[in-house]
C-alpha cells in the first residue's frame, strides 16, 4: 500500500511505523480504492479509440492506474470513455449503454468530437458533443489526444474522484427513480431527444413562418 497517497499530512506518524501505519479518513480510503480501480467500458467509436487502445498497450500501460480491465459489458464498467465522433445513428446505443452502467459511473469525453462535435460538427449525422445527452466529467481536447494526453485526462478524473465524499455521493441514497437515467433518443426525420419534445414541436411550427 502506498502510504503517501493515503496518509493525511496533519497526523504525525513515528518514522519507524510509517511503513505499517497510516492515519486517514474514511473518505480518503474509500476514494483511494475507487480511483485505483476505474474500469473502462471496452467501447471505441472512431479514431480516438485507436489511441485509447495504444494507451492500454505496453508503452503507456494504463494498468499502472488500475484501468487496464476493459469490460465489454456495461454492467461491470465504471467509466464510459467516449472515444470518437458521436453520430446520430449511434447515440441511442450509447445512451442505452450508459443507462445500463451501475453507479458510480463517470463519462470522459475523449477528443474534440466527443467534447464538442469536432471537425465533423457541421455534418448532418453528427452530434455536437456527447454532453448534449450525458453529464461529462472530463473533457480531453485533441484530435486525437495522444495516449499521454489521455492519461493526463484520466489523472484529472482521479482528482475529481478524490474530491467526492462518501457522505454526499448519491448512489447509496434510497431512491425510487434512477436520477441519472437518460431517456433514449429516437431516430425520426432527425434525432429526437424525448426530453425536448415540446421545444422541437414549437420550433418546427414556427420554422419559416
Amino acid at each position: 500500500m502506498d502510504n503517501e497517497q493515503l496518509s493525511l499530512p496533519q497526523y504525525e506518524v513515528p518514522e519507524d511505523l510509517q511503513h505499517a501505519i497510516a492515519v486517514t479518513t474514511l473518505d480518503r480510503l474509500y476514494n483511494w480504492g475507487r480511483r485505483s480501480s476505474v474500469w473502462p467500458l471496452m467501447f471505441g467509436l472512431a479514431c480516438c479509440a485507436i489511441e485509447m487502445i495504444a494507451a492500454q498497450t505496453a508503452r503507456y500501460d494504463l494498468a499502472r492506474f488500475g484501468m487496464e480491465v476493459m469490460r465489454p459489458t456495461p454492467r461491470q464498467a465504471d467509466m464510459l470513455l467516449v472515444s470518437g465522433t458521436v453520430t446520430k445513428k449511434m447515440v441511442p446505443a450509447i445512451i442505452r449503454l450508459y443507462n445500463q452502467m451501475p453507479e458510480p459511473k463517470y463519462v470522459v469525453a475523449m477528443g474534440a468530437c466527443a467534447s464538442g462535435g469536432g471537425p465533423f460538427k457541421e455534418g448532418y449525422n453528427v452530434v455536437a458533443g456527447i454532453d448534449k445527452f450525458l453529464p461529462v466529467d472530463v473533457y480531453i481536447p485533441g484530435c486525437p489526444p495522444t495516449p499521454q494526453a489521455l492519461i493526463a485526462g484520466l489523472i484529472k478524473l482521479q482528482e475529481k474522484i478524490d474530491k467526492q465524499s462518501i457522505k454526499q455521493v448519491p448512489w447509496y441514497r434510497r431512491k425510487t427513480k434512477d436520477p441519472n437515467y437518460v431517456p433514449v433518443p429516437i431516430l425520426g426525420p432527425d434525432l429526437i431527444d424525448p426530453r425536448r419534445n415540446a421545444e422541437i414541436k414549437s420550433a418546427a411550427a414556427v420554422k419559416e413562418g
Partner: peptide, 14 residues
C-alpha cells in the same frame, strides 16, 4: 431554431 444540429420538417410533432 432547434438549438442543436437538427432540421425537422415543418409542423413536425415528435
Amino acid at each position: 431554431p432547434f438549438n442543436d444540429n437538427l432540421a425537422f420538417p415543418q409542423n413536425f410533432d415528435p
